[in-house]
Design a protein around this nucleic acid. Structure first.
Lengths: 343, 343
DNA sequence: CCAGCCGCCGAAAACGTTTTCAGAAACGTA
DNA sequence: TACGTTTCTGAAAACGTTTTCGGCGGCTGG
């Protein structure tokens, strides 16, 4: 028979059922299952066994109602591809200790009114906190200061310095990329990157230029090649670069997409990578970077880490220890074959 | 003053507060706000205004407790990249009518015990239904028949035919790809695809071969080129193909990644696409397909649609109209420049 | 003027838990 | 034996809603 079997969480077996089955009151049953001290060991055992036999699963909703904590957080994103939100979600799941906290994922699709809508819904569900993940790494409008729950902005910082924002360290990433190329022995380093309206493009470029300047170097071609975040621009810029500056020996691309375009043209021109020209990307977008020819050295955005920190800060804020300002999360160098020490 | 301002959803203003403020009982307030008929228009207006002034937001948790419906569903995925789950999530959000239903996204990371863990948590949160998104389009173990809520399997079908599974129409997609090439006038068509252990690879190939056979054709090279889901395999296979069968005039790649490898070699060999050889991919993975040179015609998996249908079927099941078996969702041809009518 | 009806409102129960507090049982001590 | 103490248990209130049902007042028709 199935009735007492361990299998089926039958529809709605409640604490009352468990209590009755164990021959105690609901109060005692509750205390027994929650490890409260004031219950005899033998009684507790009986209750626990009853719960198992009935495959009791406590109704979190009722618990939330009374404890005033839902054990949920909202993850509000506008990231159509899920490229940023999923790693961040995974980091957050980790940090929240699985099973303790569940997360509502809402995609606002870059639409302010849809975002407002989702926000209302989440608040009405009494989430304990909110993580807001932007679509692009530039400041975004704050949700406001008067929300009843703590918020942390991840990837795209809030425009209100009073909020807490977590961003990847683009300046540091730019430095790191150039530093790696320098360590490998390259000196004539160009930087081809994306849309100059993006803070990320500016920051990565700044980091790169700073590190070059420390060695008394200028970028190959004289300045940074801003353009678009696409392979096509990577190809076009590389062609111009090779013409203007044929002795370039390394290219730092502002994204892996751009890097793919760069590699493509180098390959077309029969220029060996990395022995003649080294290439480094940015983002560690696996499908692009790992499949490249040769596999692409790049800067990993460390998004799980970012998600983990977001969850930690949110937990702290929920305990009453809020923080504010912009915190930058370090990035990581992923070495593959498109850069290598010059002999 | 902020007190009567519309802005801040102040901590926990309850229906009692609204009722008191409007000078009615909680019962009446509830009915007024929910559009129940047995309340005078004037009274209703007073309550609504009170609610607005206090910026009342009903506590969904309390509502759920009494209505026995949480208005939430769980989306259980193992899709590390979010490539499948996010579109499916978006489709589901659409179909559920925004704000009515919220979704918990849980990433099991292909780990059975983590999945079990998430499942317990979701059931304990009393989700109204479950969508299970697999990592790869092959059958996966069923969650079991004795769950207290309806389940629909999306992308990866369940191994229990009693369950309802929604899968993309890989056979139809294979047919569609070849059909498109035929319409464009190509006749010597090769098929390079991924790991033969994947049902998706087999199905796409089957569709392709069927359509070819209808024209009395065989695939160029005699058979399907199975291998791996990577650009590298796409490159290798293309080289072999060109050697063995230099008069090939079209290549159907089993994925966009493979297609990129194919294009790469054709380009290297200075073979014009599409005038000499046409290429079609599969997946419509934007970053790969749209950035390709030339932009890649491909088969779109139609995942939002799949998510929408999943949500509809789930809703139906929640209303007491379950279905079962495997339902295939049609795919879509996305025409770009890598195929074009001959001449 | 009265019976009956209808429209509107509110008291109270219910949902499934946790927590408080009073009381019962068992035991040791004077 | 009486009493204080310690352990353990259970009744009841609380969380914030929805829903049922009884009641009150006014209106209509006879």
């Amino acid at each position: 028979m199935e009735a007492t079997g361990g299998g089926a969480p039958n529809r709605s077996v409640t604490l009352r059922d468990v209590a009755r089955f164990a021959g105690v009151s609901v109060a005692t049953a509750s205390k027994a299952l929650n490890g409260q001290p004031q219950v005899r060991a033998e009684t507790r055992a009986r209750v626990i066994q009853a719960a198992e036999q009935l495959s009791f699963s406590p109704n979190t909703i009722a618990q939330s109602l009374i404890t005033q904590r839902s054990g949920t957080v909202g993850l509000l994103t506008s990231d159509l591809e899920g490229r940023f939100s999923i790693p961040i979600l995974m980091g957050a799941e980790d940090a929240f200790g699985a099973g303790q906290t569940s997360v509502f994922l809402c995609d606002a699709r870059d639409d302010a009114i849809r975002e407002k809508h989702h926000l209302r819904a989440l608040l009405s569900r009494r989430v304990d906190g909110l993580i807001v993940v932007g679509a692009r790494p530039d400041t975004r409008p704050s949700l406001g200061r008067d929300l009843p729950v703590p918020v942390v902005y991840a990837y795209a910082p809030s425009d209100d310095p009073q909020d807490l924002s977590l961003v990847t360290d683009n300046v540091g990433g730019g430095r790191m990329a150039v530093d790696h190329l320098l360590r490998c022995g390259f000196r004539r380093i160009a930087h081809i990157t994306g849309d100059p309206d993006y803070g990320a493009a500016q920051d990565r470029a700044r980091g790169a230029l700073e590190r070059l300047a420390e060695q008394g170097l200028e970028p190959a071609g004289g300045e940074v090649w801003f353009g678009m975040w696409s392979e096509a621009w990577g190809r076009g810029a590389t062609r111009m670069l090779l013409e203007r500056c044929p002795d370039v020996d390394a290219i730092f691309a502002g994204s892996d997409e751009i890097a793919r375009g760069v590699l493509d043209v180098l390959h077309e021109e029969r220029i060996e990578v990395p022995s003649r020209v080294a290439v480094i990307g940015f983002d560690n977008w696996k499908v692009l970077a790992a499949n490249a020819r040769p596999p692409l050295t790049t800067i990993d955005l460390n998004l799980e880490q970012l998600g983990r920190i977001a969850a930690q800060r949110l937990s702290a804020a929920m305990e009453g220890n809020p923080s504010s300002g912009v915190e930058t999360v370090p990035v990581r160098l992923i070495t593959r074959e498109s850069t290598a020490p010059l002999r």
